[in-house]
Design a binder for these strands. Structure first.
Lengths: 139, 139
DNA sequence: AGAAATTTGTCCGTATGTATC
DNA sequence: AGATACATACGGACAAATTTC
């Protein structure tokens, strides 16, 4: 599927998705974003497109990127954005269902960490993001 | 020589060559592959191209790579690592369970769009991200 | 213990060719 | 024609982990 850019161009859509992850706290302040190549796989986009998306966030002061290092979420949302969507973040441990067990290649019932953030705009729920990962083994 | 990608791209050709060396035992199980920079000279390719080739092998479970160390041929081709390319289950429509229905303040069973991203590093699943949102009203 | 060398990881900028809207 | 996007490829530089001296 080459290039259907209905409405918004891809790089802007990707930028918005990353923005949500940062503003919702899913990518906490100071944390490293996945590498450009990783994001390229994730979003099924070319690296150039990812770089364009990150450039948008950098322009907005949401991230900084260091040569040879990576791109960080900014420590503090400097500007007071009044329209900042409200957010809930909670982390909990769950048992993997068959679906997740398959993806992670673990046993059904094995523990997984799930981080859920809810993005609200006014009274309306805009998006719910759930991030599953394996528990840290190194404590 | 710029970038004529007629037929097979170079990184695939290189990947196939390396695969032969491993499967033939020329590079025995557990042995270190030559450094990326060495391979770059050998194949007269940029390091990035070599890294792409190695990524193919890593995806196929033929090698593992360690930062600062190098890339090893896998000790044991533990069974047939079934070809699992599905990295990104795109977007699908689901029916809201009670949990999501509550968060979104909609009825149980109402349609929701879920976008699932699977982040892999080599053969290992690092994270699964699921973003739920209400279907767009237009269309 | 410490410095240097090696090696992988990541980003930067650029370029070509193709394809779609 | 121009903007967007993809896949591929190059060369350079800095960062970080590991090994070697």
């Amino acid at each position: 599927m080459p290039t259907p850019h209905y409405g918004q161009p891809r790089y802007r859509v990707i930028a918005e998705e990353l923005r949500k992850r940062i503003e919702s706290g899913l990518i906490p302040p100071g944390a490293l974003l996945p590498a450009e190549s990783t994001l390229a796989v994730e979003f099924e986009a070319a690296r150039g497109t990812i770089r364009q998306a990150i450039a948008v966030l950098r322009d907005d002061g949401l991230v900084t990127t260091e040569h040879g290092r990576g791109t960080y979420a900014i420590t503090r949302p400097h500007g007071r954005h009044s329209n900042r969507p409200s957010q809930h973040i909670r982390e909990s441990e769950i048992a993997a269902d068959s679906d997740l067990a398959f993806i992670f290649n673990i046993e059904v019932g094995a523990p997984l960490i799930v981080q859920e953030s809810v993005i609200r705009d006014g009274g309306r729920t805009e998006e719910v993001i759930r991030a599953y990962r394996a528990p840290r083994s190194d404590q």
